[in-house]
């Protein structure tokens, strides 16, 4: 499995990563070699094997419906890049 520059650019966009044009080729090379490594999985037939999402096969615990958190906006927004009137600011969102 080998990835071309166009595919790398597409993946980078999906992952919202700016990759310089000059670096695309080296990413393509590295990602392709990782995919080659990963392709070794195909050596084993896994037909009928149940996928394992979690090492410990436990069930989800449920929390009581209680409000346990209080307002900590000031603390949280002290580390924010840009806030005004309690809101996080971003370039205009277009719907």
């Amino acid at each position: 499995m080998s990835l071309g520059s166009a595919e790398v650019a597409k993946i980078a966009h999906l992952a919202r990563l700016a990759i310089g044009a000059a670096d695309i080729a080296s990413y393509a090379r590295n990602l392709s070699s990782i995919l080659e490594l990963v392709a070794q999985m195909n050596a084993v037939d896994t037909t009928g094997v149940e996928p394992l999402a979690h090492p410990l096969e436990m069930a989800q615990r449920l929390r009581p419906d209680e409000v346990s958190e209080s307002d900590r906006r000031e603390r949280f927004q002290a580390i924010a890049p840009s806030v005004e009137a309690g809101l996080y600011l971003v370039p205009q969102v277009i719907e």
Binding site: I11, L17, V38, V44, T46
Partner: peptide, 29 residues
């Protein structure tokens, strides 16, 4: 960035079964 891209690719439409599901099956083995 490499790992984010590999993961993004492995989960994307059309590749999920061949990569993610396969890897989880091997995880069970």
């Amino acid at each position: 960035k490499r790992r984010i891209m590999i993961g993004t690719y492995a989960l994307s439409a059309g590749y999920y079964d061949a990569y993610y599901l396969k890897a989880q099956q091997i995880r069970r083995l």
